[in-house]
Simulated assay, not measured.
Amino acid sequence: MTTRGKVLLATTLLPLLSTVTFIVWMHLIAGQNLWGEVIITGIWVMVGFGVGYTVTQPFLRRLYNLEEAAALIAAGRLQHRIERVDEGDEISRIGRQFNLMAVQIEEQVKTLRKLAEENRLLASEAEQLAAVHERQRLARELHDSVSQQLFALAMLTSSALKQEQQKSEALPDTLHQIAGIANAAQREMRALLLHLRPVELEGRRFDEAASSFLSAIADRHNLKCTFTDKTDVHVEPAVEEQLFRILQEAVSNVLKHAEASTIQVIWEQSGTTWKLTIMDDGVGIPESDNGGDSYGMQMMRERALALGGRCDFWRPARGTAVEIQIPMIDGGESGE
């Protein structure tokens, strides 16, 4: 039964039926003729129904307005308001509260849109600042490494030309120095190009992206790269992103400084800790480096700390080893 029918029944029919039942019962007890009373009672029932219908219609229309307003608000018509809320009865009070709620919802939506626009602008500014920071870093590395190496090459080449004219016995040593500096500059440029053309995760898991990245490094730089995966869990996307950046930075350091022929990467799970180990067979970090004071090593350490983990450097029998340990949250996610 609809609300309208229930209201009509409650306001007209039920009281009248109770009255009729009482009259019939009294006449049955007295043994009197009921037809006259039944006709009069029927007339009163019709009159009562009409009066009840007329009285309840305005209330039903106002209830319908409440229902319509709720549907419109739910559909996104946040500017809709209920009219006739100043009559002082319960429906008016409900209408006023509904209008206040609609105003609050509209203001909250405006605030959310404003925050979304501010977040967009902040993200754009952050992206621009990151690009500026990266350009400054690359410019600094070019100045500190390749630029100085090119200057040294120019000086040594001029010296070699003079030595050749003078038939100097020092010419072979000078040419060896030129070749060494040229190779070092080439390694620096390869590492810088790795930063200029970074490989992205592109929706892949860390193990997939790391294996693909090392295969590309092996083909491009004539290195033997191996990737060993000993995990059975999936890593959160934020952790995967930082670990992949750490791997890129470590490989970049190998290309620039290590003069290595192999890179070995092990990705494993140790208890409730993820562990990423990167080893090469190059010249190793200098003893004066204090376990990782270079810019690239500081970047790796900061990324690990941002994940609540740690990044350690040491010298094995040959080359350099980097170990990153990241604690799991709730034991990680199952590979299934």
Rank of each mutant, 00 (worst) to 15 (best):
M1I: 13
K6T: 05
V7W: 14
L9G: 10
L16N: 06
L17R: 06
T21I: 13
F22L: 15
W25H: 09
M26S: 11
M26F: 11
L28Q: 03
I29T: 05
A30F: 08
L34H: 02
W35S: 09
V38F: 10
I43Y: 12
V45E: 03
G48P: 03
V51S: 03
V51W: 09
G52Y: 08
T56L: 07
N65K: 06
E68Y: 10
A70R: 04
L72G: 07
R77S: 06
I82K: 00
D89I: 12
D89P: 12
E90C: 08
S92A: 15
R93K: 14
Q97A: 12
A102E: 12
V103T: 14
I105D: 05
T111R: 14
L115C: 08
A116G: 15
A116Y: 10
E118T: 14
R120Y: 15
L122D: 08
L122K: 05
E125M: 09
A126V: 03
L129K: 14
L129Q: 13
V132S: 14
H133S: 11
R140N: 03
L142K: 09
S145W: 06
S147A: 12
A152N: 05
T157Q: 03
A160E: 10
L161M: 12
E164Q: 13
E164Y: 10
K167N: 12
P172D: 11
D173M: 05
H176G: 03
I178L: 01
I178M: 02
I181R: 00
N183D: 12
N183F: 11
R190A: 15
L192H: 12
L193P: 01
L194Y: 00
L196P: 05
R197D: 04
P198M: 07
L201D: 01
E202W: 12
R205G: 02
F206I: 04
D207S: 11
S211Y: 07
S212E: 07
I217S: 06
K224T: 12
T226W: 00
T226Q: 05
T231E: 05
D232E: 01
V233E: 02
V233Y: 10
H234Q: 01
E236I: 00
E236R: 06
E241P: 00
L243C: 10
L247V: 08
Q248P: 00
E249Q: 10
V254F: 07
L255G: 06
T262N: 03
I263H: 01
W267H: 09
Q269P: 02
S270D: 14
T272Q: 15
T273Q: 15
W274L: 15
K275Y: 08
L276K: 02
L276T: 04
L276F: 07
T277C: 02
I278G: 04
M279K: 01
G282K: 03
S288P: 06
S288K: 13
Q298V: 07
M299N: 05
M299S: 06
R301V: 07
E302P: 00
R303D: 11
L307F: 02
L307M: 09
R310T: 15
R310W: 07
D312R: 09
G319A: 00
V322G: 02
E323R: 06
P327M: 11
E333M: 12
E333R: 15
G335N: 04
